[in-house]
Amino acid sequence: MAEVKTNINEVQDQIIDEFGLFDDWTDKYEYIIEMGKKLSLMDEKYKTEENKIKGCQSNVWLHSELKDGKVTFEADSDAVIVKGLISMLVRVLSGHSPNEIFSTDLYFIDKIGMTQHLAQTRSNGLLSMVKQMKFYALAYQAKTN
């Protein structure tokens, strides 16, 4: 378990390294926007009210599945920067066991200077998104135990 846990952190560290290449905010945000545009479109059937994490300004949809003890996430948003941010969350958390996901400290958000987007709960639902991902993990864990 400890080994896979490092995996999540490895991805986090990778992202931190990627952001380390940028020396101004423009590059940083252009990268996030690019990731947002690249995030594979979510299957429309998952864009349900149930999967919607409502923010005040943008919508975020999150779908999760448990397969062979690993949780996979799919997410989407109508705002491209939020989409870029959630694509990183999906990249970090998807494909790991419920326990790893639940116990992970998402330090990369702070390290890449994006904490402000977590604080704006009413604006973009990103914090709710993180909570929801952890909640799914906890629910799957309870189910499998």
Partner: peptide, 21 residues
């Protein structure tokens, strides 16, 4: 263009506007 994206990039440049409903 989503107004929230616009607000984020404007804020990076010191501009405070309101977006949303």
């Amino acid at each position: 263009i989503h107004h929230q994206d616009l607000a984020v990039i404007l804020d990076q440049q010191g501009i405070a506007v309101r977006t949303g409903h």
